[in-house]
Structures are given as structure tokens and as C-alpha cells.
Amino acid sequence: METQHSELYWGARYHLKQDLNGNYYLIGMHQKIWKVFGFIALVPMSASIVMAFVSWMESDNQMHFFLIVAAVLLLISLILMRRTERFVFSRDRVSHLRGWGKTPPEKASWPISDCNVTVQPIIEHGSGCWLQLNDGGKSLTRNSIGKFEQTAEMALFLSNQTGIEAIDNVTAWPESRSLEITSSGKLRHVKPLRVEGAEYQVQGSIWRLLWVFPFTLTLGALLFVFNWIQW
């Protein structure tokens, strides 16, 4: 039975969307980075609003300065949040779209026969895997989906829907093989063996940068409360 998009793991559905034309697309890594920094810009913006309120309470002349800073930071955040990047699977090509809003312009495209999606391990995340989109061996973008089974399911879904080749770089790591399904409908997968002298490529996650937002916001709120009590 063919897997439907709504049946995919939630991590897969977050990274794989469908546009108004019915084409599936992957969210690009740059879009995520822009959104992370957009969220981070909200931290000093919130602090500026708090300082503007404090200045208003103390009746000094700095309130307007903090309001201007908050407005500039809000504008920067909105600009970053509106930036988009997509890798669209349409007909026999993979198109790279990057720009503003929901319909960014096309920057490049590749024949889908030259591309593949590869399931790769993430050693620091335990059983986590990358789903990497490649063109002739060159990485175009990649997303952290979940465990091997969840990532492989997404790769096979893309292969069935678009005709792109799906590669397994986990089962026989560091070698690659075609991603397969057994006659029982299960993924053909065994626990990867470590090769003497070889190491997985360790990569961090940009989403860890988001921890600065709740931390600094909480710290700013505590400092404001402390200043209010002392005042």
C-alpha cells in the first residue's frame, strides 16, 4: 500500500510540503537559518520594549530611542522571517527557488535523473539521520528528519512521487546502496557497523541557537522585576 503524505512522520511533513501546483518541495537550509536569526532578533527587540516602558515610568528622555530600536529590530525580524528557500520537484527537474514570500524566483534547476536523496547518519543524535538532496555527488540541501525508518520512509515517498533515486548511506556505512523495501513491505536495514579508523561526520543543529531566545527573555524579565522592586 502506497504511503500518503499525511501518513509520514511529523518531522518529514515539516520539511516536505506541497505547493499550489501539487508539486512537492523541501524547505532549504538557508530558510531555517534566516528564521532562527529572525527569532533571535526578537530578543533585543523585547528588551528594548521593556527599557522603553521603564524609561516612560521614570520620565526620562530615552523612551523614544528604545522605541525606535525596537521598531528597527522588529522590521529586521519580519524581513528574515519572510525569506524563503525551496527545492521543488516538478516534472523531470529539481528547481531551487529562493527569495521572498510564497512564490520566490527560480535560481537554478537540475535534471531529476542527475539527483538523489540520501539517508545519512548523525552520530551525535544517536539514531537520527539526515535526508540529503544531491546533484551529481554535490550536496544541495539536507534536513534532520528523525530515526532511520522515518527518514527512509520519506526518501522512498519522494522516490515514488517524483522518480528521484533514494540512497541508503546508513546500513552499510560508509558505503552507499539503493534504498530497498523487502517483500513484507519493511525497509531493508541492519544496524550499521563501525569501520576501524573511520568516523561519522559530526554536525550540529542550527535550531540550538533558539535556546538563546527563551534564556535571554527570561533573564531580561527577571532583571526587570528586580529593577521594579528596587525602584
Rank of each mutant, 00 (worst) to 15 (best):
I167W: 03
S90V: 11
S159V: 02
D168I: 08
P111A: 00
W110V: 00
P174Y: 04
S127E: 13
S127G: 10
R91K: 14
V88E: 05
R93Q: 09
I164Y: 06
D114W: 00
H96W: 14
K102A: 07
F87S: 07
L131K: 06
K186G: 03
R188T: 11
R93F: 01
K102E: 14
N169F: 13
N160P: 02
G163I: 06
F89Y: 04
G99N: 13
V117R: 04
G185M: 12
G128R: 12
L156K: 05
F87A: 05
I112F: 03
K147N: 04
N134F: 13
Q132H: 07
S176F: 02
E175D: 15
V170M: 03
G136R: 07
A152I: 05
K191W: 00
D135C: 07
H96V: 04
W130G: 01
S90L: 06
R177F: 13
G101A: 04
N143T: 10
S159F: 02
I167E: 07
G137Y: 12
P121T: 11
T151Q: 03
E124N: 13
K186P: 01
L158M: 15
E175R: 09
Q161R: 15
M154H: 02
S183M: 11
A172R: 15
L97Q: 09
N160A: 12
V170P: 03
F89L: 04
V119R: 00
T162K: 02
I145L: 02
L140P: 12
L140Y: 12
N160E: 14
S178A: 14
G185V: 15
V190T: 14
Q132V: 15
D92Y: 01
H125F: 09
L187W: 06
E124A: 12
H189W: 14
D114R: 08
P121H: 08
V119G: 03
C115N: 10
V88S: 02
I122C: 02
A108I: 01
R142G: 10
K191I: 01
E106Q: 14
H125W: 06
D92L: 01
S176C: 06
N143Q: 13
L131C: 05
P111V: 00
P121N: 08
L140N: 12
C115P: 08
S127N: 13
H189S: 06
M154I: 04
L140G: 11
C129H: 10
A108S: 14
E175V: 07
E175W: 10
G101H: 07
D168K: 06
P174F: 03
F148T: 05
N169G: 10
C115A: 10
V190L: 07
R91G: 08
K138C: 08
I167G: 05
I181Q: 13
G136Y: 02
T103A: 08
F89D: 03
G101W: 09
E153W: 05
W130E: 06
N116P: 00
P111C: 00
N134P: 09
N169S: 15
W173V: 11
I181F: 06
S139N: 14
K102Q: 11
L158Y: 10
A108N: 13
N134E: 15
T118I: 04
I112P: 01
L158E: 11
G137I: 15
S139I: 15
H125S: 07
L187R: 08
R188G: 10
S127F: 04
T103H: 11
E149N: 10
C115S: 11
T182F: 05
